[in-house]
Simulated assay, not measured.
Amino acid sequence: MPAPHHLLIPYAASRAPGAQEALKGLTLPHLDRLLARLSTADASPGEETSLTPPHERALAQALGLGTQDGLIPWAAWHHMQQGQPTGEAPSNAAWAFITPCQWQVTTDHITLHDPARLGLDEAASRELLAIVAPWFAEDGITLHYDQPTRWLASSPLFATLATASLERVQGRDVRAWMPNAREARTLHRLQSEMQMLLYTHPFNDARGAQGLPAVNSFWVHGTGALPAGLTAPAQPPQVADALRAPALREDWRAWASAWATLDAGPVAELLKQAEQGQPVRLTLSGEHSAQSFHTAPLGLVQRIQRFLRPQRFMDVREQL
């Protein structure tokens, strides 16, 4: 039997009052029809305080990366997928993502703002990378440019260092999400050094003259090394992440609009495949948990129950 087409939808539900209100007037006919055809599969329960969001756990499980909280090796996976040369790093090296960012410090909060607000382009990101890379190198951390708001870093330090997903900490107080103080002494010191270095650096003076926010820190995430012998699955899940941005900025009107677009697009396509008898799998994820559904043979009792009470999104969203 061919592998099922797997659609993964992060931020499908939220317990925020604004999201609950937005759902009242939202109709998702294709999603309801799809759920009515599918059986409940495995769940990934969790807490909003976990370092790894449930959609990342679900995706990591499908890719064979493991699901240890805060130690899903996304940076190492990305490095492998890009086919980048490892250079001096062995195939089992530990990697991390380093995201330059702005921390806003007040008397009772240290808030990490959305890195996209920095307006970094490739030239500015590479300039900043050249400024800070020697400081990281002194602690055995090698930085590599990846994209304007994200660099790759290799070091044995990242092999066992659990870190919070950037999505968990964005817009929140970083102090609740910092890595273990004993295991992350080097990173904590580097963050302090970067704040002092960049506070009066000409790089930020030039940005200020252009009306751009200062870059004064960084966030480490996606840490770990790939499991031995890992190979990419022939048909990885399709991640439909249109809900991510509006959910993170709590724009629930835009979130509801994005849901309607998803329902008419990827969800409708998955429904079509299911109606054609193809095996399909759907994973819906909130901030707490993820729940999967799949095509499976039904017994007589199950068919009767499904007919009398079909599964609908409004019934399952509270589980997320």
Rank of each mutant, 00 (worst) to 15 (best):
H144P: 04
H113L: 14
E269M: 10
S44H: 12
E287T: 11
G140R: 07
L152W: 11
E122P: 01
D205H: 12
D32G: 11
L143V: 00
E127I: 04
A16V: 09
L38I: 03
A268Q: 11
R244D: 12
A296K: 11
D121M: 06
L320M: 12
H78R: 14
S44F: 12
A274Y: 01
W259L: 08
A234F: 07
L35F: 09
P310R: 10
P148T: 07
A58G: 09
H109D: 13
L71I: 07
R175S: 10
A206E: 14
H144G: 01
E21N: 11
T27W: 06
G286I: 05
Q104M: 13
S14V: 08
L28F: 02
A274P: 01
R244K: 13
A3L: 15
T142P: 00
T52F: 05
L166V: 11
A130G: 11
R317F: 10
R253E: 14
D69N: 13
I98Q: 04
T40C: 12
P246I: 07
T186M: 00
L129R: 06
L31V: 08
Q278W: 08
Q170M: 15
A22L: 07
L166W: 07
P100Q: 08
F136H: 03
T163S: 15
E138P: 01
L8K: 03
P45S: 09
R37S: 11
D315S: 13
K272V: 09
L300V: 13
Q235E: 12
Q191P: 02
A124D: 14
A234L: 14
L118P: 03
G286K: 04
A137W: 01
A153S: 05
D114W: 12
T200P: 02
T52V: 09
G208S: 10
V280P: 02
A258C: 08
T67V: 15
R185P: 01
L128I: 08
E287D: 14
W135M: 15
Q81D: 11
A133S: 15
A62S: 14
S14C: 10
N180F: 05
Q102Y: 05
Q319P: 02
D114I: 09
P73E: 08
H6F: 05
V132A: 03
L38H: 06
W252Q: 03
T86R: 15
R150S: 07
A256M: 07
A242Y: 02
E127S: 14
T283H: 00
T99S: 14
I72N: 06
A228R: 13
L8E: 02
P2T: 13
P54V: 09
R312D: 10
L198Q: 02
T142C: 06
F313G: 03
L23Q: 13
A60N: 08
E88Y: 06
A93H: 02
R249W: 07
L320C: 04
T295W: 07
